[in-house]
């Protein structure tokens, strides 16, 4: 379960770039390419194996004109999907 206290890292074979309004993610080992929406892309960009999800939200919040609760709900959904797809891994 990913929550606001979860710390994540990108999987080693993940390569990604932000191409607003999308982000492109390539998993080298599979190989596969995924297109993310920009919120998921901005979150993925900030995943650093240190910052908890709440910190990622602090960084991303100023970019979007949306209330914190909505952003948090969306972010947790996106990050859960990224974890299920093997793009991010839970560190703590």
């Amino acid at each position: 379960m990913i929550g606001v206290d979860t710390v994540l890292r990108r999987a080693k074979d993940v390569r990604h770039r932000l191409l607003p309004p999308e982000a492109v993610v390539i998993r080298q080992t599979v190989p596969e390419v995924l297109v993310l929406n920009d919120v998921a892309g901005e979150l993925l960009e900030r995943v650093d194996a240190r910052t908890p999800v709440s910190g990622l939200l602090d960084q991303v919040a100023p970019l979007y004109d949306v209330d914190r609760a909505t952003l948090e709900a969306d972010a947790l959904r996106f990050l859960t999907e990224l974890a299920e797809a093997g793009i991010v891994e839970v560190v703590a």
Binding site: L19, E22, V24, V33, L34, V35
Partner: peptide, 11 residues
């Protein structure tokens, strides 16, 4: 959903 080809075309 946007496809990778569509993103490439945009580039």
């Amino acid at each position: 959903m946007t496809t990778f080809s569509a993103v490439m075309a945009r580039t």
